[in-house]
Design a protein around this nucleic acid. Structure first.
Lengths: 233, 233
DNA sequence: TAGATTGTTAATCGATTAACAATC
DNA sequence: TAGATTGTTAATCGATTAACAATC
């Protein structure tokens, strides 16, 4: 339809919604549905239809007025735009429960993630096999990363060890780090860190539970009927 | 110092930074440091010192001009505010690799999370023990949740099964759901869902890697020296 | 055509930043 | 006191929402 201004970059909140839209579109394709409206995409992502159209306006892919978005076409476009069709080679450091779970997570492979090596410093773990990978000592990380031009590192070690792991990754040339350790990493400007701090997330859930309890107490004291409406037995 | 307006609720972005500040304060306490400045807290969270002071202005806890924030005092305040000191009982459904890893994650217990039951529908898993919990069939979930007044549910099942698990949780009276399945859940208004969609997060990392590659190609074509600066060998 | 839904614009909303008087 | 750092205000920035002409 209209003309896209070339200088405008997609906002991060919009970017984060694209995978949700993509999933909804794939579901439509699998159900044999040809077109999906912005309202339907918004429903999947929990945002308004206006928001969806705004998000998609940052892409160079148009919907069809009066019809919606071509499910197959936009899904493919998003796979390209998000790089899901490219193979992304990664190393994972920290072969604890979480690290093993991520290494074996089936959803990642479908998005092009290839974990090509797993590292740990626990002598008891080195040599063990997770999936198709043998666990290697962290000392071998920088050279391997450098030699194979690995772009991505996943950190699932305890917080105290995370910074030195990040340093080793940066030394090897890694520029994207997915950090599951509950800590702040210090890296050069050209390295992109995404934190997946589950303990911090839990803290916000914890706050939510605490608030709910408080408001329930208040409500019970004020009007017993409202309280019963919210907590049907 | 000043007067807090009572009607102002803390914005979600601010709320999500509080656990990071809390962690930084705990580190200070462990190092025997009495006060931490907004600049130091901001450094830990990757935000400006002005942002930190703004975030903390939503709390009813004051720093000391010219000195900073009392590490022990503010840490305790945040533990209360975030509800970290309260025990929060939860059930977890989906005893796959990720579910087991979360059930055994040591960081959660320190924040007051008690996973008091684990469910799965795979007959091969039912009866197995994870940590201190025996895996139970999902059919037993609603009554157990109701009887013990559990507030929180953690979902780590495949996407196709997630909605029915959420329904069972809601039936039992759960009002906070932590959803690790890559799907959108439909729940009543009084239920609070936090999505931890790792596949969607991976998609944004994937986009980042793709963009870096593109800009490196461009930069290499334009000025070879810049490219070398960004990729020291 | 009539109905539906798009892409875009302008208005609104909310979060971040900058600046500084207050104060420890 | 002098120096440092706070809490708050106002200015800025950016994202979301509402409205509607364009159009399939």
């Amino acid at each position: 339809m209209g003309v896209r201004k070339p200088g405008v970059r997609i906002p991060v909140p919009s970017l984060r919604r694209l995978p949700i839209y993509h999933r909804r579109l794939r579901e439509a394709v699998e159900s044999g549905i040809g077109f999906v409206s912005s309202a339907e995409l918004g429903e999947a992502a929990g945002v308004s239809e206006a928001q969806v159209r705004k998000d998609l306006s940052y892409l160079v892919y148009d919907g069809r007025s009066g019809v919606g978005y071509d499910a197959k076409g936009l899904a493919s476009y998003l796979e390209n735009y998000l790089g899901l069709i490219n193979d992304k080679e990664a190393v994972l450091v920290g072969a604890g429960n979480l690290g093993r779970a991520l290494a074996l997570y089936p959803g990642f492979g479908r998005y092009g993630l290839r974990i090509i090596a797993i590292f740990d410093n626990d002598p008891a773990k080195i040599g063990q096999v997770v999936g198709e990978q043998e666990i290697l000592p962290v000392s071998k990380l920088p050279s391997l990363v450098q030699r194979l031009h690995i772009q991505m590192g996943i950190i699932t070690v305890p917080a105290v060890a995370a910074q030195e792991v990040a340093d080793a990754m940066v030394t090897g040339g890694i520029t994207v780090i997915w950090n599951f350790s509950p800590c702040t990493l210090h890296v050069p400007d050209n390295v992109w860190v995404q934190n997946e701090d589950l303990a911090a997330q839990l803290a916000t859930l914890s706050h939510q539970i605490t608030q709910q309890k408080l408001s329930n107490l208040t409500r019970t004291a004020e009007t017993r009927e409202d309280s019963l409406t919210l907590h049907p037995r």
